[in-house]
Structure formats: structure tokens, C-alpha cells
Design a binder for these strands. Structure first.
Length: 980
RNA sequence: GCCAGAGUGGCGGAAUGGCAGACGCGCUGGACUCAAAAUCCAGUGUCCGCAAGGACGUGUGGGUUCGAGUCCCACCUCUGGUACCA
């Protein structure tokens, strides 16, 4: 670190005036940290470890957004703070660089994806470094690095090599899978197929979401409203052979293990709901005549409930077996396997037509037309209701999903909203079998206490989670029209009938999940190739046998392709790879490589492990280092990844755990979701035919268009300048016409709206420390908040004041103000200092950065007034500021006479005694209203407080003629006199 | 529809059940200046009042409490998520 030199651009004419100039000091310190390797993390923790992780960004072509530095600044503060408290901190950064946008961009600009990806990474890196984050850049990685995706591929081979043992509730090596004797007897091919069907990574002819515009299939999670999450293109359903990951095997553990995690209840619930566990029963409905039914049911008593439903029954899943007596018809999904058998000759044409229509309907179309309007066709056949012994008709309808439960339902129109609508539509019988419990909704006002009211409502909601709508009641109640069960409460009935069905061999308890297996293959170029080989016979046809590429032969690199554009057909672009890549000979056999690639999620499933040991080329992560650094102690990122990324990563981690590659079952101990940053607040007025229309005179028409209420004319929105509006009551109105209300709202930043704030611009104008500080000062980290340039200016102003607190800005040289002296602080100064230390320390621990900054502002306001500013207090303050505004802090630290970075300087210690004051001001309340204040010794006793309060002249005046009924005294806090 | 979160000055926001509005922005006044900018100092919830002081005030209505922005019940509005999962 050289001596501080005068900058030419600081003051070109006249005497040198050392102003706060972030454009000069920020690059200087970034350079220093880099050359001194200040933030390099040792291989193993040297002290208590702290692993703080940011969700790594996707390096898009548009560069960093102001939303990125929000979470990154928060974690940077936590890390810098932790280092100063002696912890060994692991704080890495990387890039999630595979995926569709890069490929789309590459196609559009005709650059290879690797080239544009590298450019984007370079740009992101520059921007991140410009903000002064204390990452250990030597650990930086990108999911597209060959040395990285080699291990992504390796983990895939682990998934391929694993089956889930439901008894032990864990994944085990495929070699340990017990093979039934009859399978063994059928030979090696049968055994291989048996294994392949049970692997965690398996191929399946799945009904997939095919997106022609993107030229790939998408996971259910990537389809929103029947359109692709990326690009908003329509998606079709079609059957295709795809790679799937058996995440459903881990559903139970993915729910259960949430318990021990320090995540917000909201996020936990989101994951829980996504997994969607429900309990109920599977019930078999006999397909045949009433006569045969007696014989069949007698047999069932002996043989019990079979694992696989035969073709003589229609198996359904229901969460309400108690409503079995009300099941008046059945519905199968259009894709149900028994449909051919169920359809009678006369209905064949109609059913076939309906099935065709349903299969060609995209999800978009299924949801677009009135979702409430049910469609369906009668199959002509019926099944026997096992409790009544009576036949009920079987219908086909697309409101039943093939992929959930058994793909068939028993319909109870009296107690299920959807069944009810369908029954009304097609005039099917409705039998009520549950009677709502008449809620004793007594007058709430007469409740004896709040707590008993709470108990009552909890019980009520537990027993009646549904609502009565028209004729349909989906809540819990008491059974009626249910034979011997009449009068039984729903919950009890469920248990009883499930047991009864089980003993009769007609049903069994069952658990279902909304979560589906993870569709893992994509028909695109820019992703990790699958490390899988398909065996070919002599004629070059696939035999169906597959094997994984051996670990020592990894990575499978991407081949060079002249043309990797999607062509709208489901054959992956890698199919056009040169033969040298595509075909492999091993052990005298010929193989063709798998040509699908992995989805973007793959790389982000384990990057946190690679950061621990990023350059290891013998193992994905050294187990000793893994054990030392894991779990991630703090993981910060946007809530948009609350479900997908976090669920996928947890799943992979559990597989690695089961197979002994990592030491703990969960990767992310504490999770914090940063809120979204919106654009500046905008005022929007509306005009119709050039005349202003008040927002109170607006409504939406059927098409969602804004029209006026009175004339029904469409309106156009007009941006109104802040100076032209004024507040009136609860809303804003035009200043020159208060009858016209306008909208006041901040919108999501978007290119089309033109309200995107560019971090480069902010840094150029105000400096990185100001940007960091502002993003933390805006409000709570987790809240959604609007941007305000005036606010940035405000924190910049604060940093200027910090500068002038210590720097002699009128001097000829860069030097301390004469006011900064080597003297002991006064008692008052010491109190302010230590209160500030205590508050800032506490607030950082709570991640309440906005209040921490407020406390530092108070410190500066106080010491700005001081004629003499003790150097020791200034030094402590600089250390407090360092995690927030590290560049400025380093500069001042140096000015205070230190020759080394403050990055590892010990955090100031609070002197508790100094924070206390001898006297406190205590309010006097009369009947809970503030009536006066008095200054008393801090340790003033209750008795003395009362005496002093009563002696107060103003109190006496107010108490005249009144009688004191009660006195509440909280020492050091308040006195409250209750009088009559 | 359902689920989650949030409603506090002109604005962003603070407040272990104990003095609502910390801190910042904005605004007003003052000092400095020939003047301006910058800076520093003071004030700034609303209403009544010359003032002292008083009344009202945390989306709405109720409740618990000596005391409620905070706890309970009901409702309204906004934001985000989700969508036939039987």
C-alpha cells in the first residue's frame, strides 16, 4: 500500500481540497484487496467457520440489476462483520451459466454460446468487483466450466446408480437391489430392465410439456398457465421418452427434514404445499355385474387388497373415504389405461373423439376456456360401489388428471365442488352423506375472554375446513345416509371405513403427493450432456441397454456444432454431432451417446459443495473439507427460487448423503429471501378523449381493459409528474383539479416500462459505498421496496458527513481535522459510542441493516457537533462502518494511522457500563394518557417513583378532586396513575 | 377461489404490550455569502389556540388490558404465489 497521492481530477485549479471522492478511493481499495488477497479463504477453517452463500446469478447479457446487489450486500456485511469477530468465513461467488437465454441469445447474435457466456461472466465479474464484495474470487466457478460439469455428470451417474429402498427410507447402490427369483430366471436382460426401472435416474415415456417455440420439453415447474416460464410460448402435451429423476421417492423426507431448518415458515409452507402430501384411501370398484360382485367380494376377503389393481376393478384414490356412500358415479382421466375396456360399443366413437380432443388440447386451452365448465363423456359401463353394492356409471372427463393418484376418482357430488359441477352439468344423482355441524356461532361480544374464543375457532376450523356452496358441502361434519355409520363424525368415519375396507380386501390407506418425478432432459445444446451410452446392435439400432460413462472417462464434453438451432422437432441438436463424438466403442460393443442435455437446474443443485473445494480434480469435494464447512450457515436469495431450486438441491443433497458422499442430510441451515426492488414511484392519471378521468370512475371490462364507469369509454394512462399531484384524503389527486384521482404506485423494473436502474450509473454518480448503503437503508431486507434516487443521494450525504467528521477538507493535504484528537472521550461521548456499538452489533446479528445505519447516522450527527472528537471513538466508528461502506472505512482507517487493512481488525467491544446513564426521563401517565415527565435516577425504586410522580406539581393539579384507584409503576419506564 | 405477506406523516421507513413517527428524503426558517451552490443550526403528524396547553391520530369495526401500531375476533384494500391434485 503506497502513500496516498493527490488525484488530478479532484481539484484541478487552486489549492488541494480533499473531498470524499469514491471514484478514486473505491478502485484503489479493490485493487489492494485483490493484490493482497485479503479475502482468500483457507482450505480448512482456522477458527469457528461461517459459510455464507449468495444464490449465484445467471449471467445475462443485460448485466447486473440493482436487485442483485441487495442480497449480495447483506451477505457481504454479515461476512465482513464475522471476519472482524474472528470467524473463518467462506463467501464464494459463481455463475449459473448454462441454459436457454444464453442459447437463444447465441442463436440471435450468431455467436457460440460459450463465447457469449464468457463475455457475460466477465461483465458480471467486473460489476460485482466494482461493488467491493469480499468474495474469495479464487474460488469462482461457472456451471459451464468443463471442470465443474464433469462432476455434475458424475453426480448424475450416482443418481443412475441408486435405487430407493422404501423399507430403510434411503437411497442405496443399485447393486444392492434385491432381484426377485422370477426375474433372475428370465435372464440378464430382464434383470437389467428390472434395475433400470428402479433407478433414481430413469427413462420413461412421459406425457411431457413440449414447447415447439423453444424446441424443448419443460418440467411442470417451468410451465405457467400453459405457457413456458421463459418466453411465454404455448406448450403442448405429448408422449416422449425422457429422463426422469425420482424425486417423489424423497417426498416424505423433503417435508420432514424442513423441521430442523431455520427458514421462514412461509417458505417451508410453500415447499410443503408444492410437495402436496395428502392421506386417504385407495378403493377398488368392481367392474362387472351385481351377481358377480358377491363372488368377487367374497374372494377379496381371502386374498386381500392386491398391490396391482387388475383389469377387473377400477381403483380410485380418495381423501374422503367417509363419503363413499355418496359416490354416485366415477370418472377416469382421458389417458386412463382401462379406458378401451370400459367403453361400450355404442359410446366408442364419442369417447374416442373426447380423448383425441383432450390430448390435442394444450394445457393452455384446458385452462383458458371457462375452467368452471366441465366436459366429459359417458363410457357406457358401470362399476359397483363397494358399500352399497349398487352399480354407478363411469365417465371420462379431463378434470381428472391421469398423473395424480390412480387417474380415476369416485365422484361425490354432494361434497366435492368439481364433482358437483359435473353432476349438475350432466344431470347425475347427488346424495348428501355429510351433515355440517351447526356452528354454535354465538354473539362474539359475549365471549368471556379472548383465549376461549381462540380455542373455539381453532376447533371449528379443524372440523369444518370446507365451505357450503349451493348444494355442495366439502367440510367435515356428521355422517348421514351412510348405513351403520350414520351419526359418525367425519374424522372418525374415515378411520373406521378405511379399516373396514382393508379387512374386506377392498381398499387400503394411501398417501399421495402432488409432486411429480422431475423431468430432467432437454432437447437443447447449451447444457450438460448426459453421461449415458445406449448400446447398439450390429445394424446400429438401440438394444435398449444403457450404461453410464465411467467416472474416469468424465467429462463428456460438448461437441462443436455448426448448427445447434432448435428445429421444432423433438430430436436434440446433439444428434447432429460428429460421429467421433456420438459413437463410442467399449468392451467390443458399440454405443451411441445420449443426446439430450440436462436442464439449467442441474448445475445449481450442488455448486455450494464445489465452492468448498473448487479445484479438486480427483473428487467433487473432499469429504474432510465438506465436513468442516457444511452446512451453508446463511443462504440469501430471491423468493422466486423458494420452490424449484431449493427443492431440487435438497433432493440431490439427500441422495449424496444416502450414498455417503456428504455428511449431513440438509445443505442450507438458514435461508433468507431478499425482497424485490421496484422502480421509482410513479403517478398515473387516466384520460378519455383527452379529458381527465378519476380512478374512482374506472373499472375493468370483460377483456380486462380499463373503461370509465359512466360512459364505458376506454381510457389511456398518462404519466403525471410528482409536482402536479397532491394528497387528498387517502389518495392522490391532480393539483389543479382535485376531483381527479390518480394512481400512485411503484412497478416492477422492466425494460419495457423504462424504469430499470443501472448499478453502473449509480456507482458512477454516487459510488459503490453509497449504492451498498442505500440498498441496505431502504428498509427491511425481506420487504419489497421502491427505488428512490433521492434516497441514494441521502446516504451519499451521510458518507460525506462521515468524511468531514474526520478529514480536514479545507487543508492543503489529506489529513485529519484538528478536532480529531488523541484524548479520552467525555462520559457522554463514551455513552453515545458504546450505545452505537451495542446497537450496530445487535442489528447486524438480526440482519436489521436499515436500523444499524440509522444508529450510525445518529452517531455522526452527535459527533459533528463536538468541538473535540476523540480519535479512539472515531476509530471504533470506522470499524462499525466498515462492513457497510468498506472502501470509505479503509481510507479513513488508514488516515487514522493504520497501515493494514481493517478487514480482520477486531470488532469494537461494548462497555456495558458506559451505555448506562445515571438519570432517566420517566413519563407520568394519568389513565394511560401522557401528562408529564420527570427526570429521576436510573435505579429509582418503585416507591420513590410513585412519591416523585405524586409530588410533581402538574400531576397534583390534574389529580385535584380525583381519587387514585390504582398505580402501575415500571421502574425506569413509566408511572401510570389510574384515577376516578 | 385458495395460500402467504403487508397497510403507520407529503415519501422510504422506526418502535421487548409502556413517551407513536427513530433515521433518511422532502419542505420551512435562520447562519455563512455581494449572490448562489455547498455546508452548518433549528423546525416540521393533523386540528384548535397568541401562548401555556388541549383534542384527535398507526386501513375499518369490535374485544382483552391500568395501558394496544404491537395480542384476539370480524371485515376492507394492496402485493406476491397458486390454480380442477380427488
Amino acid at each position: 500500500m503506497g502513500s496516498i497521492t493527490t488525484s488530478a481530477n479532484q481539484q484541478s485549479i487552486g489549492s488541494f481540497m480533499p473531498r470524499y471522492n469514491p471514484a478514486e478511493i473505491e478502485p484503489k481499495w479493490q485493487q489492494y484487496w485483490e493484490t493482497e488477497r485479503t479475502f482468500r479463504t483457507p482450505d480448512m477453517p482456522q477458527a469457528e467457520k461461517l459459510y455464507v452463500l449468495d444464490m449465484f446469478p445467471y449471467p445475462s447479457g443485460s448485466g447486473l440489476h440493482v436487485g442483485h446487489p441487495e442480497g449480495y450486500t447483506a451477505t457481504d456485511i454479515v461476512c465482513r462483520f464475522a471476519r472482524m469477530r474472528g470467524k473463518t468465513v467462506l463467501h464464494p461467488m459463481g455463475f449459473d451459466a448454462f441454459g436457454l437465454p444464453a442459447e437463444e441469445h447465441a442463436i440471435k447474435t450468431n455467436t457460440p454460446p460459450r463465447v457469449s457466456t464468457e463475455q457475460n461472466i466477465a461483465e458480471f465479474t467486473r460489476q460485482l468487483k466494482m461493488l467491493g464484495f469480499s468474495y474469495d474470487w479464487e474460488r469462482a466457478l461457472a456451471t459451464t466450466d468443463v471442470g465443474y460439469f464433469r462432476w455434475t455428470q458424475w453426480i448424475f451417474t450416482v443418481l443412475f446408480d441408486t435405487w430407493y429402498d422404501p423399507e430403510q427410507q434411503r437411497g442405496r447402490a443399485i447393486a444392492e437391489l434385491p432381484i426377485p427369483d422370477d426375474v433372475t430366471a428370465q435372464g440378464a436382460k430382464a434383470v437389467a430392465d428390472y434395475r433400470d426401472a428402479r433407478r433414481l435416474a430413469y427413462q420413461d415415456d412421459a406425457l411431457v410439456n413440449w414447447c415447439p417455440a423453444l424446441g424443448t420439453v419443460l418440467a411442470n415447474e417451468e410451465v405457467i398457465d400453459g405457457k413456458s416460464e421463459r418466453g411465454d410460448h404455448p406448450v403442448q402435451r405429448m408422449p416422449l421418452r425422457q429422463w426422469m429423476l425420482r424425486i417423489t421417492a424423497y417426498a416424505e423426507r423433503l417435508i420432514g427434514d424442513l423441521d430442523g431448518l431455520d427458514w421462514s415458515p412461509g417458505i417451508k409452507k410453500l415447499q410443503c404445499d408444492w410437495i402436496g402430501r395428502s392421506t386417504g384411501a385407495e378403493v377398488d370398484f368392481f367392474l362387472g355385474s351385481t351377481d358377480e360382485y358377491l363372488k368377487w367380494s367374497a374372494e377379496r376377503v381371502d386374498i386381500g387388497f392386491p398391490t396391482d389393481a387388475g383389469s377387473d376393478v377400477l381403483r380410485v384414490y380418495t381423501t374422503r373415504p367417509d363419503t363413499l356412500y355418496g359416490a354416485t358415479y366415477m370418472v377416469v382421466a382421458p389417458e386412463h389405461p382401462l379406458i378401451e375396456q370400459l367403453t361400450v360399443a355404442g359410446q366408442r366413437e364419442a369417447v374416442e373423439k373426447y380423448r383425441q380432443a383432450a390430448s390435442f388440447k394444450s394445457d393452455r386451452e384446458r385452462t383458458e376456456d371457462d375452467a368452471k365448465k366441465k366436459t366429459g363423456v359417458f363410457t357406457g359401463s358401470s362399476a359397483i360401489n363397494p358399500v352399497s353394492g349398487k352399480p354407478i356409471p363411469i365417465w371420462v372427463a379431463d378434470y381428472v388428471l391421469a398423473s395424480y393418484g390412480t387417474g380415476a376418482i369416485m365422484a361425490v357430488p354432494a361434497h366435492d365442488e368439481r364433482d358437483y359441477e359435473f353432476a349438475v352439468q350432466f344431470d347425475l344423482p347427488i346424495i348428501t352423506v355429510v351433515e355440517p355441524i351447526a356452528e354454535p356461532r354465538t354473539q362474539l361480544g359475549t365471549e368471556p375472554s379472548g383465549s376461549s374464543g381462540k380455542d373455539k375457532s381453532a376447533t371449528a376450523s379443524e372440523h369444518a375446513p370446507g365451505e357450503t356452496t349451493g348444494q355442495c358441502f366439502s367440510g367435515y361434519g356428521t355422517a348421514i345416509n351412510s348405513g351403520q355409520y350414520d351419526g359418525t363424525p367425519t374424522a372418525q368415519f374415515k378411520t373406521l371405513i378405511t379399516e373396514s375396507l382393508a379387512t374386506q380386501g377392498l381398499g387400503r390407506e394411501a398417501v399421495n403427493y402432488k409432486l411429480r418425478d422431475w423431468l430432467f432432459s432437454r432437447q437443447r445444446f447449451w447444457g450438460e450432456p448426459f453421461p449415458i451410452l445406449h448400446e447398439l446392435d450390429r445394424t446400429g439400432k438401440a438394444t435398449g441397454a444403457i450404461r453410464a460413462v465411467a467416472a474416469e472417462d468424465l467429462p463428456v464434453n460438448l461437441p462443436h456444432l455448426e448448427d445447434y438451432k432448435p428445429h421444432g422437432r423433438p430430436e436434440p441438436p446433439l444428434g447432429k454431432a460428429p460421429d467421433e463424438w456420438l459413437y463410442v466403442e467399449l468392451d467390443g460393443k458399440r454405443y451411441r451417446r445420449e443426446t439430450n442435455t440436462m436442464p439449467q437446474w442441474a448445475g445449481s443443485c450442488w455448486y455450494y459443495l464445489r465452492f468448498i473445494d473448487p479445484h479438486n480434480d480427483t473428487v467433487f469435494c473432499d469429504p474432510i473439507k465438506e465436513k468442516a464447512w457444511m452446512p451453508v450457515d446463511l443462504y440469501v436469495g430471491g423468493a422466486e427460487h423458494a420452490v424449484l431450486h431449493l427443492l431440487y438441491a435438497r433432493f440431490w443433497h439427500k441422495v449424496l448423503f444416502d450414498r455417503g458422499h456428504v455428511s449431513m442430510p440438509e445443505p442450507f441451515q438458514k435461508l433468507v429471501n431478499q425482497g424485490m426492488i421496484l422502480g421509482e414511484v410513479e403517478y398515473t392519471g387516466y384520460q378519455s378523449a383527452g379529458k381527465w378521468v378519476s380512478t374512482s370512475n374506472l373499472r375493468k371490462d370483460e377483456d380486462g381493459q380499463l373503461i370509465t364507469v359512466d360512459t364505458r369509454q376506454p381510457v389511456e394512462s398518462v404519466v403525471v409528474d410528482e409536482a402536479d399531484v397532491t394528497k387528498k384524503g387517502d389518495s392522490f389527486v391532480l393539483a389543479n383539479d382535485p376531483s381527479i384521482r390518480v394512481d400512485s404506485r411503484a412497478h416492477k423494473m422492466s425494460k419495457s416500462r423504462g424504469n430499470v436502474v443501472n448499478p453502473d450509473q449509480v456507482v458512477k454518480e454516487y459510488g459503490a459505498d453509497s449504492l451498498r448503503l442505500y440498498e441496505m437503508f431502504m428498509g427491511p431486507l425481506e420487504a419489497t421496496k421502491p427505488w428512490s434516487m433521492a434516497g441514494v443521494n441521502g446516504v451519499r450525504n451521510f458518507l460525506d458527513r462521515v468524511w468531514r467528521l474526520m478529514v480536514d477538507y479545507q487543508a492543503e493535504h489529506f489529513e485529519l481535522l484538528p478536532a480529531v484528537q488523541d484524548v479520552a472521550p467525555t462520559a457522554e461521548q463514551n455513552q453515545v459510542l458504546h450505545r452505537t456499538i451495542a446497537a450496530v452489533t445487535h442489528d447486524i446479528e438480526m440482519m436489521s441493516f436499515n436500523t444499524a445505519i440509522a444508529r450510525m447516522m445518529e452517531f455522526v450527527n452527535f459527533f459533528t457537533k463536538a468541538e473535540v472528537r476523540p480519535k479512539s471513538a472515531m476509530a471504533d466508528f470506522v470499524l462499525l462502518l466498515a462492513p457497510f461502506a468498506p472502501h470509505l472505512a479503509e481510507e479513513l482507517w488508514q488516515l487514522l494511522g493504520n497501515s493494514h487493512s481493517l478487514a480482520y481488525q477486531a470488532w469494537p467491544v461494548v462497555d456495558e457500563a458506559a451505555t448506562k446513564s445515571a438519570e432517566v426521563e420517566v413519563p407520568i401517565q394519568i389513565n394511560g394518557k401522557l401528562r408529564g415527565r420527570m427526570v429521576v435516577p436510573a435505579d429509582c425504586s418503585k416507591e420513590n417513583l410513585e412519591k416523585l410522580a405524586l409530588a410533581d406539581p402538574r400531576t397534583q393539579e390534574l389529580l385535584e378532586g380525583k381519587q387514585i384507584v390504582k398505580t402501575i409503576i415500571v421502574p425506569g419506564r413509566l408511572v401510570n396513575l389510574v384515577v376516578k
